[in-house]
Design a binder for these strands. Structure first.
Lengths: 121, 121
DNA sequence: CCATTATTTCAATGATCATTGAGATATTGA
DNA sequence: TCAATATCTCAATGATCATTGAAATAATGG
């Protein structure tokens, strides 16, 4: 997904708060199945109203999405937005000097386990 | 460079401000040679005191570095920190599900020009 | 339908941060 | 050294934001 400056600012702003940054990382690691609001709140040490406030903030910024499942609301990371954010920040970094940005690409994730699979590491 | 949560928060906070986000992107694109404080300020439309304030903020966060060259102070992007930030945010994203994070890696930059060179796109 | 679980909304409070303009500091060429 | 250029410092102002706890809403199982 292509981000413009205003949305990129919203996303960085959303990520610049301890509770929200933890939430995003927990959801990135949880994968597409996601976690309930309560589970996310507990994982990051937030009150229920605090968790709700920050999850709503992250969803407004486009970093996560929600779906209802019975009594729970399940949140999951929006990988598209994360991808778009990295693209926005590193735009034209390579141009002319690939040796500079190459480490950034390699670092973009890639756990040891992932390197052994189809991950483009 | 490996980032811990407190520094990652500082970095995201620094990037969540219009003038500073523009400054970082200008410096990412400028490459290691960097730009003078005045040139950066002009590129992003900031006053001289405003440019100084925001550049100092970015340097404190570890996103840029400075060196004096005659009358000017030259700022350049700290690619290490940018790499570390992406690593921190996407940590363990791949684990078990490389197909999810692969797009994020591919997106991590890679201009059309870069794809034709040694860039690991 | 009722009690329970899960989550959200709301308003008040305190804390943090960008902006502005004037002045201070640093460096150089003449 | 003097004048000009480049950048930084500082304090005051206004705006934005997280936190808190109580109450409201939603959905389910019995």
């Amino acid at each position: 997904m292509k981000l413009e400056e205003p949305q990129a600012l919203d996303v960085f702003s959303a990520l610049s708060q301890e509770t929200r940054l933890r939430m995003v990382r927990v959801l990135v690691q949880a994968g597409p199945e996601g976690l309930s609001a309560g589970a996310v709140g507990e994982a990051v040490g937030a009150s229920s109203s605090g968790a709700s406030f920050h999850l709503a903030h992250l969803e407004r910024a486009g970093l996560i999405q929600s779906r209802r499942e019975s009594r729970s609301i399940i949140y999951s990371a929006s990988y598209d937005t994360l991808t778009g954010l990295i693209e926005f920040l590193m735009a034209d970094c390579c141009s002319g000097r690939p040796e500079i940005c190459a480490p950034a690409i390699a670092a973009a994730n890639c756990s040891p386990a992932a390197k052994e699979t189809s991950c483009a590491c």
